[in-house]
Nucleic acid binder design. Sequence first.
DNA 1: AACTGTATCAAACGCTTGTTTGAAAGTAAA
DNA 2: TTTACTTTCAAACAAGCGTTTGATACAGTT
Lengths: 211, 211
Amino acid sequence: MTAETKTDQTRARLLNAAREVFSQHGFQGATVREICRRAETNVSAVNYHFGSKDGLLAEALNFAQLKALQAANIKADECPEARLHLFIRDFMLMLLDENTPSSQCRIMARELADPTPALDKIVREAIAPLHKFLGELVHAIVGDTVGEAELRRCVHSIFGQCLFYRHSHPVLQRLYPKLRYDSKEINAIAGHIADFSLAGVKRIAGIRNPV
Amino acid sequence: MTAETKTDQTRARLLNAAREVFSQHGFQGATVREICRRAETNVSAVNYHFGSKDGLLAEALNFAQLKALQAANIKADECPEARLHLFIRDFMLMLLDENTPSSQCRIMARELADPTPALDKIVREAIAPLHKFLGELVHAIVGDTVGEAELRRCVHSIFGQCLFYRHSHPVLQRLYPKLRYDSKEINAIAGHIADFSLAGVKRIAGIRNPV
DNA sequence: AACTGTATCAAACGCTTGTTTGAAAGTAAA
DNA sequence: TTTACTTTCAAACAAGCGTTTGATACAGTT
């Protein structure tokens, strides 16, 4: 085994472990020692390979999946209403599904409220494009009938509903101990948010809602 | 000055400082040293008066304002739709207004995603009643036409929209640097959420929405 | 075989955390 | 004033944190 391959293997193990631990405990709550324990390597490996805990977070972030989601949604040959539904479902799957290794989105969700050195990068490269994307999708639904501020608030309403299930998960588990985020439940939640939001944005736009 | 008065004064100063710091940095991010610095007392005062940092948090929590909000809303002689609007406005004022010293609600909001020893108490005494209250309010609007699961999801949609502006504040400030939560902005946000949600719950209930 | 550079590791470093200690100051009753 | 009790405080404590160090093992080159 060459030295380079060994380096890459250790790096990869560290990145995977970091994504796990960051998404579970947040940046502040995660410890370098636990990440290294899961990566089965020494504590000093983080600083050797990534310079610092900050550097590890920066490299652990990966927005590819989020961008793929948007690209696939744009390509989908559907009306804007259907695309909104699709987007919400895919987004909720990324946020909630415990069977997929898409912890990037969950890392970001954790950091929203607690600025870390990486938040500027996250906002610039992931969140801002995401808001722009959803803003355009909502605009395609309601047309030019709503002002910029109201359009933004519609986007906030949609993201707010989605993120609620991630942020408030510890609370919801206490309120409803039987709650499980299996694919059936996630689909039901996504369907609800899509219906609820479609009625909401149309109401804001002054469009009559059919039953 | 009697000893008891002195004790109470120090206790009160510690509680006020604790509410400030907890709401700003969260439980984990807050340090007893900073709390004591703001309370202008010694580090050991926290353990002397409250036993531990956990004990300080438990006593710093105060759900009176949240309960007063619900009581006032029930007393208000308005239709359910108007009461929903009132509730959302008052709730947003508690969550966002920086000029009012209602940091309790903000402490809770911070802890939602990050279980602390106090979360069980918070859920039991504050969040569960709040969800029950809003559930009944939504039920008063839509009647018996929607199932229990869908009603719960409507409540989640409303809280999700409200909490978004608190949780994502650091992100929103980066996206829109001009954003300020003055009373005009808070009222606009509350109005939007009320309109948006009213249309949403009626759509879920299968009630046609007027323009 | 000797040399070079990289990767790993146990151990330690400097710092911060929540908490404890023991003495000093202050208050109230005898 | 003496006594008993409460409150404050500087200092220290043990544990945990991110990070650094110096030795060791190892691959590839000469």
